Amino acid sequence: MVKIGNIELGEFPLLLAPMEDVSDPPFRYVCKKNGADLMYTEFISSEGLIRDAAKSVQKLDIFEYERPIGIQIFGSNIESMREATEIATKANPDLIDINYGCPVKNVACKGAGASLLQDIDKMVKMTAAVVKSTHLPVTVKTRLGWDDDTKNVYEVAERLQDVGIQALTIHGRTRSQMYKGVADWTLIREIKRNPRIQIPIFGNGDVDSVQKAYDWRREFEIDGIMIGRASIGYPWIFREIKHFFNTGEILAGPTIAERLDVCRTHFDKSIEWKGEKQGIFEMRRHYANYFKGLSNSKEIRMKLVSLNSVSEIHAVLEEIKDLYLEEV
């Protein structure tokens, strides 16, 4: 049984990665329904939280059906991170996660996210401050290092465990790789084998199929897998991996009707959470992924993104469903 603090996550948990502009409550809802064991909010700026910025505060929204769920924060100032931790704790998540992995320029070049991999002493001080500022378990997501010459995550794992983190997720790339190249999990396995490490170690990066999840679980000896990009428009990846682990059988992919139903559920939750105008706008980025591989997916997407009312979008989704059911 994998545990973070008192949170029981089962024998081999599947985690939904915190993804900016993706991992909002509507998306988390459909991933939870399909078997995600632990989910995180989009990452939240500590500076935004302490300034009460609307966008940052809205990201604190969590719902009972999502549990267990972590709020992920990032920042470059230790005092701001301490204050942000206190604010996030009041939102009553199950844990607080610190982002030391985001590689994008406007985060890393401001001394936050993966940038802290260049200053482990500061990372350790920041983590200790966060741990002391909450009664909740604190976890961390990071990368192998800043670049190929500074793959220092082995040291990071030991030192962050020493100041109280209760789980560590490692993305198998350096910051300089961004999301290019192939994720390398060999260092993750070395950390898992380190006799000093007692906390759960989760692997992240490039898990995009049932077979890969199965093979890497065995090869790299991790306690669980965090899945990000492969779940966008395909929340079924969680249930498919679990089914294979439990039965050794490859589950058939979702039917067209299922794709449409989940897309509609995601859409309805988006409207419910953000309101009609914003909900319609934010859902547009998801259509291409839900209908990927269908013969006329581009036409479907172009039609859906051109519409501005809930009833019109519902009508088009029903039309598509009826059309495909007739073809079957």
Rank of each mutant, 00 (worst) to 15 (best):
M1T: 14
G5D: 00
E8P: 08
E8A: 15
G10E: 10
A17I: 08
M19Y: 10
V30R: 01
K32L: 12
S46N: 05
E47G: 07
L49C: 06
K55E: 13
I62D: 04
F63T: 07
F63N: 09
R67E: 12
R67F: 07
I71E: 03
Q72W: 07
S76E: 11
N77M: 01
E83F: 05
A84H: 08
I96A: 02
I98T: 03
G101L: 07
V104N: 09
C109E: 15
G111I: 09
A112V: 11
A114M: 13
S115D: 12
L116C: 10
D119K: 14
D119I: 06
M126I: 13
T127D: 05
S133K: 08
T134W: 12
L136P: 09
T139Y: 00
R143L: 11
D148G: 15
T150W: 05
T150D: 14
N152W: 01
N152Q: 10
E155F: 01
R159C: 00
Q166D: 09
I170E: 03
I170R: 01
H171R: 10
R173E: 09
S176K: 14
S176G: 10
Y179S: 10
Y179P: 04
K180G: 15
R189C: 00
K192R: 15
P195K: 07
I197S: 04
I201R: 04
G205V: 12
G205I: 11
V207P: 04
S209N: 11
K212L: 15
Y214Q: 02
R218G: 15
Y234I: 06
T247Q: 12
L260V: 14
D261I: 07
T265Y: 07
F267M: 10
E272Y: 08
K274N: 13
R284K: 15
R285M: 13
H286G: 09
Y290A: 04
K292A: 13
K292P: 00
S295C: 03
K298C: 02
I300M: 14
V305S: 05
S306Y: 06
L307A: 10
N308M: 08
N308K: 13
V310F: 02
H314C: 09
A315Y: 06
V316P: 01
E319L: 03
L325M: 12
E326R: 12
